[in-house]
Structure formats: C-alpha cells, structure tokens
C-alpha cells in the first residue's frame, strides 16, 4: 500500500520557484492562492537553504482535527483532501496548520474567507475523477492518471520528490549516501520531530 509523501532536498533546491509556477498552471488556482511556496532560510548568508513547502499530508492532521464541519479526509494513500462543498471558510485549519498550507481566495467583504483551498497532492477531490467540477474546485487529478504531483515531477534539480514514501526515501537515501552529506531534508523529521541525537550532539560541540 502506497503512502504518498513529499520530500524536499534542501541541498538541491535552488529557489527557482518552478514548482510554485507549475502548480498554479496545472490547477489554474485563483489569484492570491498559493498551494506551494518556496521559503529561503538565512537568505543571502552562507549556508542558506531553500525549501519548497506545501501541505505535508500529515498522518495526524491538525486541520482535520479542528475543522468544525469535519470536511477533511484521508485517502487510502494518506493524502489529506477536503470537501469544498462542506467547507464554511472559518479559517480554523489555517490557524492550526504549522505550514500555512490552507489558503483562502478572499472574495468577500472585509476579507471574508471563501472556501479553503490547499495542495491536493494532485489527487483532486471527492467529485467524480476527471470531471469538470473536480477540476474547477480542486484542480487536476493526476494521481488518477497514474502520475505524480506536477511540482515534484517537473523539479529541475530533483530537489522536490513526491510519491510513494518507500520509493522517495529510497531515492533520497541513495543520493545522500553518494554525496556523503546533507541528510537534513525537509521531511517529517524536520517538520515534526526534534533533530536526531547525533545532530544534537554536534550542535552542542559547535556551541562549546
């Protein structure tokens, strides 16, 4: 059983924003909605790192936990999707999400939120696959075409990897072994866990 994951290799991301553009183009998202963005840490300082971030499709998804209408669901593949017909635009998922994934097209008066929009892992939504409604609401359903998210597939440096967790981690493991460094990857460990013990030891040495 596939478990879909994104993984961004900070050693490789060159901040070209190709993934951001590809995503906008593929799904024709409304103006002001950014399903994916590239953040550069320590910009302009030696050791700067860029990370492409979108919905991380969490196993214990905060958005899902706080949604007052319970409009989120996990697919078989662990992709977090939501039903826009149910969404009331309250903004709770936006408060809860650590990655700033939920987006709102601000169409209403006083910045009133519309229906939430977020990265779907190119898996569409609850509408019938490849239907016009599905495309309008959620964008293209590439997963149902046997393809992977456009952002990862078109990444020029292959910094952003997406797909079955086993495959992705295998690719990354081989890569990290080959180059012998830079296993500090934008993935679940960074996002959720503390740094591994080995790294923390190094940090202490660096400080003393």
């Amino acid at each position: 059983m596939a478990r879909m994951k994104f993984l961004c290799d900070s050693e490789r991301c060159i901040e070209c924003n190709g993934c951001v553009t590809a995503c906008k183009n593929e799904h024709e998202v409304p103006w002001g909605v950014n399903r994916r963005r590239v953040v550069t840490l320590s910009d302009g300082v030696p050791g700067e790192k860029s990370i492409s971030v979108a919905c991380m499709h969490c196993s214990d998804a905060p958005c899902m936990a706080v949604c007052p209408v319970d409009c989120f669901y996990h697919t078989d593949q662990g992709v977090v999707l939501h039903d826009k017909d149910m969404c009331i635009g309250c903004g709770y998922c936006f408060y809860a999400c650590p990655f700033g994934a939920p987006q709102y097209p601000q169409t209403g008066t006083f910045g009133m939120r519309g229906k939430m929009d977020k990265c779907t892992f190119c898996a569409g939504g609850p509408e019938i696959d490849h239907s016009e409604e599905e495309f309008k609401k959620y964008g293209r359903n590439r997963l149902a075409e046997g393809k992977l998210p456009i952002c990862a597939e078109m990444c020029s440096t292959k910094a952003l990897l997406g797909g079955d967790g086993d495959v992705v981690s295998e690719i990354f493991r081989e890569r990290a072994l080959k180059r012998g460094k830079g296993a500090d990857v934008w993935g679940w460990g960074t996002a959720y866990g503390s740094a591994p013990a080995q790294q923390q030891d190094k940090a202490k040495e660096g400080k003393s």
Partner: peptide
C-alpha cells in the same frame, strides 16, 4: 505510480 516515482531518480 511506483515506476513514475522512480523516474525522479
């Protein structure tokens, strides 16, 4: 999907 994923390598 798996084959597609390996293309990323």
């Amino acid at each position: 999907v798996r084959a597609r994923g390996r293309l990323q390598d």
